[in-house]
Every structure is written in C-alpha cells, then in structure tokens.
Amino acid sequence: MSRILLAGDQFVRNDLLAERLLAAVARTPSPPAVELRTLELPWPHVPFGRVAEVDEASDVEDELVELARDAEVIVTQMAPVTERVLAAAPSLRLVVCTRGGPVNVNVDACTERGVLVCNTPGRNAVAAAEHAVTLILATVRAIPRVHGTVAAGQWRSDLYAYDECGLELSGSTVGLVGYGAIGRRVARMLQAFDARVLVTDPYVAPAELPEGVALVSLEELLTSSDIVSLHARLTAGTAGLIDAAALALMRPGSYLVNSARGGLVDYDALLTALDDGHLAGAGFDVFPAEPPAPGWPLLRSDRVVMTPHLAGATKQTAHRAAELGAAAVAAWLAGEEPPGLVNPPRDTCHTCSADDGAA
C-alpha cells in the first residue's frame, strides 16, 4: 500500500488530483494499491508567500508535518516542503510539484534525503501564450482605456484621430525575448496575424526556427520591433534585462509587454519612457513586487494595461497540472524514472525500497 498525500488548493484541486492519479495508476501494468489522504490549501483566496526556507507557498507547514509523517508521496502545487516537513516524513520518497518550478520545495534537502522531486513543465504554456497575445492586443489597441470611456457614458469619436490609434498586428514586427514553450506558441499565433516575428534566445539555434521567424541579437530585436514581448526566465543574467539603455533602443512609439517575470524590467526606467512619450504603451501580467504597492506610479498611467499575474489561470491548466502530476506518480510506482525529475537519483536504481537509503 503506497500512501500518497494530495495537498491541493483552490486551483489545482484535490478532486482533480485524485481523479487523474487513480486513473493513471489503473493504467499501469500491475496497478499497486494506494491510500490517498488530502490537505486542502487556501490559495488563491489566501496569498502565498515565503514559508521557512521556501518561496511561493501556502502557510500550512504545521498541518503538512502532521499529515506527511508516513506518506511516501506528496503531490502539491503550493504546500511548503521544507526541511522541517522532510524531517517529520521519514518514509517520503517522491514530491511532485504541479507547477513549472518547485520553488515551494527545498530541493537540496530532498536530494540529501534521497527524495525525488518532479515538476510539471509546460502545464500552463497554452494559457500563458494565449494571455500574452491577448495582452499584446489589449495594449496596442488600448482596450481597457477605451472600454472605460464607453462605460463612463462617453462616445469618444475623437479616439479615431490618427495620434490616438493603435497598431494592427498584421505587418507589424513583434520581437520575442525568449523562445521556450510559451514563446514558440506566441510566435505561431502571431504568424497567424501576419506579423513579422523576431526572436532572441541564447539557447536557440537558427535551424530550430520555423519559416518566417528570424533569430537576432537583443539589440537588433529592440531596434527593429514595433512590439516587444518578454518570455525569458528570470536568472542572474536576465535580471533587469530591459533597463533604461534597452528601452532607449526601442523604436519611438513602440510597445513593451511582459508576461514572464517582473524582475526582467526596470520599471522606473519604463515609467520615464512612457511619460516622455518614447513608448506608446505597455502591458504587464507581472510586477517587481506583487501585489504592487498602492500609489505605485505605473498604476496611474492610462498607457499601461495590467492583469494580476494570472496568465496561466485556465481550467485546462489545472487539469493539465493534475494529469502531469499523476503521470509522474504512476511512473514512479511502476518502477520507472518519473517525468519532470529535477534532482537526479543517487544511483542507477530509480525505485529502490524505502530501507535501502536510495530513491
């Protein structure tokens, strides 16, 4: 009997996790018996934060310590898998984090204890790409601003003036900073709009790009694009990538959209670029601090379109996260190396017994 703790929340729910997990286990060659127990987390109704040594987690460490004592597997999106939780769970062999990066899991401590950690990369790629394109369209056509005029009882025919008009994607050049799973989908959608697509990504070779998508340097992308959309990971090398110097390279009257990570952009420099008219507008799903502080200057700008870091928030993302997480657990139970593994096993045995010190 394998004991599995499902620590779902109000997005990737326990009923979704249980349904997908039981179905995945039933499809294995010799389905093992499993015992499921659940812990319901309050996110997103209660914001996540730092818990002990991990980030972006629900503050349920005490509850997790109690429920994980004899668990072999934990499946979660937001539960804090900390050193304290690991110390209280000597039978634990696998943690499946149903998100792209297991920031709520102390991966180093898991590795030291022989606990495998898996994530679910690509779970929200479709949702995030669609949201990015939506944000681009809303930004270049100023949809929230013009909606507000109609909602206020105004009929602003003056918005038809040339200087008030936005751009068509057809014929525009859109530069994508980052060409991973999300960036690739965005590129395909933009091509359907007949946009010219440029890409900069140090990990991509020209041969990987489809016809009509060009690989260029960051400088060329910034100077050549009508719209720049960010899809890069936040690393020491990309932090502050779009700073005052980068913004100065962008075309006058161009647009910047960031649905990747807030730390990629110098927002003070961006505000200056908007205020002096160098940029026509900007769209954001991510911010330097979340939520933004009241009175943050960009909140007052009518040239900015903002959404509260929900690019990945679709029902399909939740279903996909549960499906990918279930596949990882089922593979491990079947004696296979689970997909999405982020820490290597200590030896070549992928599914050693609990008492031989390896996992």
Rank of each mutant, 00 (worst) to 15 (best):
M1E: 11
N14M: 07
P44I: 08
P44D: 09
V46W: 02
R50Q: 10
E61F: 07
E61K: 06
V75R: 07
P80G: 07
T82Y: 13
V96R: 07
R99C: 11
R99W: 01
G101S: 10
C118V: 08
R123K: 10
R123Q: 04
R123N: 09
A128C: 13
A128H: 04
A129T: 13
I136Q: 02
T139C: 03
R141G: 01
L159P: 02
Y160K: 14
E164P: 00
L167V: 02
I182S: 03
R188T: 10
A192E: 06
F193R: 04
D194T: 05
D201N: 10
S217G: 08
T223K: 05
S224K: 11
D226S: 07
L230V: 07
R233V: 12
A239W: 05
D243A: 06
A245E: 14
A248F: 06
L256A: 05
A260L: 00
L270E: 09
L274N: 00
L274M: 09
G283S: 08
P292K: 15
D302Q: 13
H319C: 12
W332G: 03
G335L: 05
E336F: 06
P338H: 07
P345N: 12
R346T: 05
C349T: 14
T351A: 15
A354D: 05
D356K: 00
